[in-house]
Simulated assay, not measured.
Amino acid sequence: MHDLAPDDAVVAVVATDSLRHPMVAVKTMADDSARCAVDEAQFVHDSATLRSQRMEHSA
């Protein structure tokens, strides 16, 4: 995929669209490294959201 679409924004759109197919999502989540990457990304996203909310409330 990196050779076909080196732009992360394009890869994100393709991955998101692909994961909307139930069997693709099942197979993806069965892959330990893919599941770990999703978990890590969710943690980073949640942490960034929490920091942003804290900054808004303290201002």
Rank of each mutant, 00 (worst) to 15 (best):
M1K: 14
M1F: 15
H2C: 04
H2T: 14
D3M: 07
D3S: 10
D3K: 12
A5Y: 12
A5C: 13
A5S: 09
P6W: 03
P6E: 07
D7E: 13
D7H: 08
D8Q: 06
D8Y: 13
D8L: 13
D8F: 10
D8G: 03
A9K: 04
A9R: 11
V10F: 14
V10D: 02
V10W: 07
V10K: 14
V11F: 04
V11A: 08
V11P: 00
V11N: 00
A12G: 09
A12N: 06
A12I: 10
A12V: 01
V13L: 01
V14K: 08
V14W: 07
V14Y: 07
V14M: 06
V14R: 10
A15K: 12
A15T: 09
A15R: 04
T16R: 07
T16F: 14
D17N: 15
S18I: 12
R20A: 06
R20P: 05
H21Y: 07
M23S: 05
V24N: 07
V24M: 04
A25G: 05
A25E: 12
A25H: 12
A25I: 05
A25Y: 11
V26W: 12
V26L: 13
V26H: 12
K27Q: 12
T28V: 06
M29L: 15
A30E: 15
A30N: 09
A30V: 00
A30C: 03
D31Y: 04
D31S: 06
D32C: 09
D32Y: 13
D32P: 05
S33T: 12
S33H: 03
C36V: 10
C36A: 11
A37T: 02
A37M: 09
A37F: 10
V38C: 06
V38D: 06
V38Y: 04
D39Q: 11
D39K: 08
E40D: 14
A41T: 03
A41S: 01
A41H: 00
Q42W: 04
Q42D: 05
Q42H: 01
F43C: 07
F43N: 15
F43R: 12
V44I: 06
V44M: 08
V44E: 01
H45R: 07
H45P: 01
H45M: 08
D46N: 13
S47Y: 03
S47Q: 02
A48R: 10
A48F: 00
T49K: 07
T49W: 07
R51G: 01
S52V: 03
S52M: 06
S52F: 08
Q53L: 05
Q53N: 11
R54N: 01
R54K: 05
M55L: 10
M55G: 00
M55Q: 11
E56P: 02
E56M: 13
E56A: 13
S58K: 14
S58V: 08
S58W: 04
A59E: 10
